[in-house]
């Protein structure tokens, strides 16, 4: 049983205080939804959790140990899906996924594209994909990830209802395996074992 927690976290981007005094705790199998209007720091909080942005105050802990002392281990147990899809148009769907899998020392089978219904497109150059399909290709990285912590920034944007349901199934399976997820979203995602963190204007 792992726990990922934040206490009194603050974030300054540029010279602007984005949020302050943020705290949460999630355990294996749990999910945390970040809610709040635009500009309240949902993305920034995810970027702090991923280690891109240093926290200006407070700390993040994994099983009680500050993650700032073990960034390598933290990176290894984290998968991040940001606003941008990191899809190379010159590569086929399978090549795109294969690269991200090999970066983690794994191989990706075409089967990894099945949960988000891209397997029939595996040979297609990604340049031909629609916005929603690119999003699904990016999210397919989750299927080849064995990371314990998923950080998802608006994962359902540009997804239709069918794909959203498929994504929720992927997240639910991750939770069932004991994984955890932190998800920034504007929608009520029907996941079990969910807690909600509301971010307001700083």
């Amino acid at each position: 049983m792992d726990t990922f927690a934040a206490t009194e976290l603050a974030c300054v981007r540029g010279e602007r205080l984005v949020f302050t005094g943020v705290g949460f705790a999630i355990a294996s199998g749990g999910a945390l939804l970040l809610r709040g209007p635009n500009g309240t720091g949902k993305s920034s909080l995810l970027r702090v959790c991923a280690g891109f942005v240093p926290a200006s105050a407070g700390q993040l802990t994994w099983n009680g140990r500050p993650v700032t002392r073990e960034w390598d281990a933290h990176r290894a147990r984290t998968t991040y899906v940001g606003h941008l899809d990191a899809v190379k148009p010159a590569f086929t769907v399978a090549e795109n996924l294969g690269f991200w899998a090999s970066l983690g020392g794994r191989t990706a089978e075409v089967a990894a594209l099945e949960p988000l219904a891209l397997d029939h497109l595996h040979d297609l150059p990604a340049a031909y994909l629609s916005a929603g399909q690119k999003r699904r290709l990016n999210l397919s990285r989750l299927s080849v990830s064995n990371a314990a912590l998923w950080l998802l920034d608006e994962p359902t944007s540009s997804l239709d209802d069918v794909s959203t349901a498929a994504l929720l199934a992927v997240i639910a399976a991750h939770q069932a395996r004991g994984g955890m997820a932190v998800i920034a979203t504007h929608h009520d995602l029907p996941l079990r074992n969910v807690s909600v963190l509301r971010l307001g204007p700083a």
């Binding site: 891109f52 390598d72 990176r75 899809d85 899809v87 970066l103």
Partner: peptide, 15 residues
């Protein structure tokens, strides 16, 4: 950087 790959490269296990 523009397509978001750099973030994923930075987060990869490779230093």
């Amino acid at each position: 950087y523009e397509d978001g790959s750099l973030e994923l490269l930075a987060l990869a296990p490779l230093p």
